[in-house]
């Protein structure tokens, strides 16, 4: 018992919940102190890729988008996304117009309407780095400029945008440097 108690003291800071809920007969103290996490938690917000709900979902549907499971989002929202994309950007005005990924309005919004972030476990993480596309999202990725290029840039958006003043917000980095190690995000202001 004594040794077990010592171990518990050492690890309580990182594993109190685990000990508490794996309660053996020796763990009665922790079991009594276990937080109550019972009950059902119901969804209010969700997010995969940046700026999807905010850009492509019409005002009256934003709450609904947040409580539609990803596997149902495409069927429910692709059409709305396509309508809003074409209203937003002249780069899709003509039949056959595509973006720098070679996607027309239907294909691009078909990709976006399912709002999940694809992450390639074995590749360098980037939203887009010139080679890798959507292998995750790094803190320093200029995701807004990538999205602006794909929305406004047209077929040659990466090198010669059809709407150059709309394809880059000219804010290219965060206002504080990120950390090289955990927790990676900069300290608060």
């Amino acid at each position: 018992m004594k040794n077990i108690h010592k171990i518990k003291v050492l690890t309580v800071a990182v594993a109190v919940s685990l000990f508490a809920f794996n309660c053996s007969n020796d763990d009665d103290d922790n079991m009594n102190n276990a937080p109550d996490f019972s009950g059902t938690y119901s969804q209010e917000d969700q997010m995969g890729r940046p700026a999807i709900n905010t850009v492509f979902v019409s005002a009256a549907s934003k709450d609904m988008f947040n409580v539609t499971i990803p596997s149902a989002q495409g069927a429910a929202f692709q059409s709305m996304f396509q309508t809003n994309l074409k209203a937003l950007s002249p780069a899709y005005a003509n039949p056959g117009d595509k973006n720098a990924l070679g996607l027309d309005a239907a294909a691009f919004t078909g990709l976006l309407a399912t709002d999940v972030l694809t992450v390639a476990l074995d590749k360098p993480t980037t939203f887009y780095d010139g080679t890798n596309v959507l292998t995750g999202r790094n803190l320093a990725d200029d995701v807004i400029t990538v999205e602006l290029i794909l929305i406004f840039g047209g077929e040659t958006g990466l090198t010669m945008s059809e709407n150059p003043t709309l394809s880059n917000d000219n804010v290219n980095a965060n206002d504080k440097p990120f950390l090289p190690s955990f927790p990676y995000l900069a300290s608060p202001w």
Partner: peptide
């Protein structure tokens, strides 16, 4: 390649 997203849920 995984698909991942985050949710907030309230009791």
């Amino acid at each position: 390649t995984i698909n991942t997203w985050v949710e907030s849920k309230r009791k």
